[in-house]
Amino acid sequence: MASSPYFSLAILFLAALGFGLAPLGLAVAWAKLVSPAKPNAIKNAIYECGLESKGDAWVQFRSAYYLYAIIFLIFDVEAVFLVPFAVAFTGLGISACVAMLVFVLLLAEGLAWAWAKGVLTWA
């Protein structure tokens, strides 16, 4: 085992692990052995600005938000692909142009669908 070329690496790895874990262990031992623990309900409360916390931290967002994310993606991804397409436009063959046209039309169809669903109108 000691003849393995990775042996010294393993020793170094263990030393590094000990170097990281020893202070943590010391801190835990110090807290357990020495620190005077006097908990109470107020001390264990979540908020620490003197005010009582109200309500629930698990706030729910409307799932309808994903529609905006999808419509954003339509324009965002489209732009990412259109820029290199425009730069290399003069050197492209027929097949590349058709592939790009299909991609753009698919995204345009998504936009048309969202428009027809009334997603783009909000009060």
Binding site: N40, K43, G50, L51, E52
Partner: peptide, 13 residues
Amino acid sequence: PQVVRLYNQMAEP
């Protein structure tokens, strides 16, 4: 009340 609550949240001693 906030002062007393803060005092309660402080570490001993």
